[in-house]
Structure formats: C-alpha cells, structure tokens
Design a protein around this nucleic acid. Sequence first.
DNA 1: ACATGAATTTCGGCG
DNA 2: CGCCGAAGTTCATGT
Lengths: 230, 230
Amino acid sequence: MRLVIAQCSVDYVGRLDAHLPMADRLILIKADGSVSIHADDRAYKPLNWMTPPCTFEESAIEDIDGEDTGEKLWLVENPKGEQLRITIAAIHQDIDMELGEDPGLVKDGVEAHLQELLAEHIETLGEKYSLVRREYPTAIGPVDIMAKNAENEFVAVEVKRRGGIDGVEQLTRYLELLNRDDLLAPVHGVFAAQEIKPQARTLAEDRGIRCVVLDYQELRGIESNELRLF
Amino acid sequence: MRLVIAQCSVDYVGRLDAHLPMADRLILIKADGSVSIHADDRAYKPLNWMTPPCTFEESAIEDIDGEDTGEKLWLVENPKGEQLRITIAAIHQDIDMELGEDPGLVKDGVEAHLQELLAEHIETLGEKYSLVRREYPTAIGPVDIMAKNAENEFVAVEVKRRGGIDGVEQLTRYLELLNRDDLLAPVHGVFAAQEIKPQARTLAEDRGIRCVVLDYQELRGIESNELRLF
DNA sequence: ACATGAATTTCGGCG
DNA sequence: CGCCGAAGTTCATGT
C-alpha cells in the first residue's frame, strides 16, 4: 500500500471520459495494483480509480522545448485500454507500507440471513404458522419461503432487506402461478422486509398481500432468548 | 484528511452486523467526517466504513482490573445509532493533511450523454432517419428517443449504456402502447446500447426490435469530424 | 465464462 | 423529503 498526497490533475478515458482539475488529493496505490484518487469529501468513494489488473508507468513531462517541467505523468492502464492519466505537479507526502493479506469481512444480516432467521422463526408471521420449506421451487424460480397458516393453507413469503415494487411484482407472479395449482390453492402472500416502501406496501395490500416489517435485531433476540432458556 | 495505518479490529453494528479480525489496515478519516477502513486489496472498496454525518470518539480500553491495556477504542456513530467500533492495537503511521475543497469531477459519456449524441446523429440508425423528439412522453413514461424512418414511420428508441432484458421489456411496453394509437402505428422499435447482452438481443429480435450497438467514441468522432469541416 | 441478483449499494434527478 | 433509476456500479453465486 502506497499513499501519496500530491497536487495532481487526472484524466480518465474508458467507459466514459472524466477530468479532474489540478488540486491536492490522496492517491492510493494498493498491493492488488488498483489505484484510487480521493478528495477530502465524498465519504468512502474515490473521485476516480482503476481496478486491477492494470499497469502503472511513470514518466517525466517535458515542455515544448524538450525541457523537463518537473511534473510527472503516472499512466495507469488496463488490458481493455482504459486509461487513468495522473499529472503530478507536487508530492506532499509519499509513504509505503506492507499490510499483508487481510483476513476479510464477516457479514451477518443480509437477505440470505434474514430468510434463514425468518424460516427458523416462522411463527413471527402468526400463531400456528409452520414452515414447508425455504427456496420452494416453481417454474418461474424459487419462492423464498413456503409456509402454512393456522388453517393449514399455503403462504408464500417473499423476503427482502428493502422491499420495493419489484419484490411485490415478483411475489404476485408466484402467487398467480401457485394459485393455478388446485393442490395448493388458496395460496396467500406475505411480503416481508426490514424496510417496506410506501408504494410497495400500497400495491401489496391492494393485491391482498400482507406486509410484515422484519426486525433483524429482534429475530436475533429470539434466538438469544431461546439460548438463555437452556 | 487523516491517514492512519494501524493494527486494528473492527465491528460494525447497523443495517447489518460485520466483523473484521485484528490486522494491519489503513484507516481514512476525511474532512467530511467519514471513516473508511481499507485493506491492501479489494480495489477502491473499503472493508468497512461510516458515512457522514457521524461522530468520532476515542477512549482507552481497560482490562478487567481497570488497567489500561494500551489499546484504544475509536467509536464512530451516526444519528441512526449505527456504530463502527475500531479497536486500535498499534499505530504504524499517522499523518494529517489539509487538502481543501475539491473542484470536483467532470463526467462525460453516461446514458444521458449517449441519448444526446444519438439524438444529434439519428442517421446512425439508418439513412433518412429524422428526430421527432427526445423524452417523448407516454402514459407509462417517456420514450428515450422518438424518430421517423425513411418511410416516415415512427421509430421508438430505447437507449441504454448496457442493454439487458429489462430494457427490452421496457421498450416492448412502450411499443405495445404506442401501436394502439392509430395516429402513430406502425411504430417500430430500436434497442440501442453500448453493450447488448446476448439474451436481451435474442428477446428483442424475437419481438421484431432492432438492436444497435452504439460506439461512444465513434459518435463523438462524428462531432469532431464535423467540427473539422468548419 | 456468463447471466442473475443483492448491496450497509451510492448517487443524482425530479416531484 | 421520498421515490425512481443509473452506475466506469461492484460483488458473489449459480449454471
């Protein structure tokens, strides 16, 4: 990892064209070969970058008379021919440090995990609910969770972290298909998400689909409480 | 902008839970208050981060006996209560630098620009093609470009940077609607993108929609050539 | 390798 | 302020 704070201008030519006028910025050169250029804002997003694989080449910039201007051109290029051209006017800091390979991130709470938790605690949807199976297969793709309600009727559940119109449309297609099967009908629908957008809720309820807001911490809490009982 | 290279472990509790075991990493603290944690890989993407607005607080970590362990806890928290807890075991580098406000990025070549260029050079679609208007309004949303072909028939054009199934479906809906209007029918369809996925192409051609791959550099080149003529 | 779909998506535009 | 859709999306997964 090399960190360079420098006065620089940048041009990107590739999937689009972009230009950054001369200013002080951080240039981050990682061991994977990637280069990214950060300003002191825009949170974690760089102004410009090049992802590996790519090559890095430094050259001196000469003026019309062939005199060295003291400026450097850093040319970063990938095999597709996309280029990042960094003109370095002055370097304020330049540090290099070996970090070694990172153990990596352990995530917990994405959609797959929500589905898992809800399947384990299907009674969150109502008393006497029981799980039929996760990823219940249909001709147009798997339903996230298939369950049965207290009346022993089928309930198809679509799980999302953020529930939008798309998810409702998806569930609607499943319900339409499933309800054509006399062995299953009537199949009810539940749209379950950590966050449900108003439009999605309206559309869902309009179609007789019940909306359930999932509380991830609470679902996890149920597990913790169960554990505490032992 | 503060750059800290440190041996640290990180826990994020918020929209999901995530954990990073102890290792050497770069911690980037920007003037906007954002904090991001980078490893020496994963290109420009940080392992973990917190976007502003958020608060930063440092405290000493004590062991069970109340003895200072020498470790520090950096607690980054946003108003929603999401937390980034960084345990600092050792600091290898710590530099601080004022960068000032960035002039910002000039972009050129995104979808809006593709649409603009194609509208200006509608003959790219065929000889004698003429532009009716961009963002041609319909009840279900605007058609990117409405044109007429050499036979003076309407042609609805959907412009995408990357053409997938969705774009074809969208154009199909427009065409269905537009062709119900006797004043417009027959309306032909053109699916224009910098890159068209095979499945999208198959679907489009199956529906009688013509696929056109746009070359951004070439469209720009036309402009350059025109300029050169003057 | 390619297509599909989630992401702490982010980001910007428009209403 | 919230919805909607693009993004140099990126990233992981399944086929």
